[in-house]
């Protein structure tokens, strides 16, 4: 029982080029030999992301999840994983200013994952209808996944004054 998804892949990619009004480069199609195909491609313009989302909506698709990747302090690589009739469409975009247009108004399934990205990585989905904190309390700083704090540091912070010294210093800076 082999599924015939290749026609659908070609149709989606053709539609995508019409929507984005540009030719897609870097399209990679992975076929697992059982008729399942995963499509990977890259977009460069931020304005293109809502267009990709509207295309997915046209096909009655949904957002599976969104993977933020830390490249350096300012640069993030975001991978959007969409599902259309069992087909995985993976769209990668690099952002350098910690801002990205929100696709939640188009695809409601993006709601939580965009808020999680804002909490943990500090990348702000602009135009999100419900931009409240999701995972972290309001009192904590945004983007905790930006830096790596070793367990031994964290433990030392809990057992000594180190943590409070950090907090007081941050407070002084803020004031």
């Amino acid at each position: 029982m082999k599924r015939q998804t290749h026609q659908l892949v070609l149709a989606i990619l053709a539609d995508l080029e019409v929507y984005l009004k540009t030719e897609l480069d870097n399209v990679v199609i992975y076929d697992d030999g059982r008729g399942n195909e995963d499509v990977f491609f890259r977009i460069t313009e931020k304005e293109h992301l809502p267009l990709v989302a509207s295309l997915v909506k046209k096909y009655n698709g949904r957002l599976v999840t969104l993977t933020p990747n830390v490249i350096d302090d300012e640069t993030h690589e975001l991978v959007y994983h969409f599902d259309i009739e069992g087909l995985l469409i993976n769209c990668t975009i690099t952002v350098t200013d910690k801002k990205i247009p929100s696709i939640t108004p188009i695809l409601k399934s993006a709601d939580w994952t965009e808020r999680e990205m804002k909490d943990l990585f500090g990348v702000v989905p602009e135009g999100h209808p419900n931009p409240k904190r999701l995972i972290l309390d309001e009192s904590l700083a945004e983007g905790v996944f930006q830096e790596y704090i070793g367990l031994s540091d964290a433990m030392a912070g809990a057992a000594t004054n180190k943590l409070w010294e950090h907090i007081n210093e941050a407070k002084r800076k803020r004031d």
Partner: peptide, 9 residues
């Protein structure tokens, strides 16, 4: 919709 392992058989 996206069969894996032995499910297709």
């Amino acid at each position: 919709i996206n069969p894996y392992a032995a499910y297709p058989d």
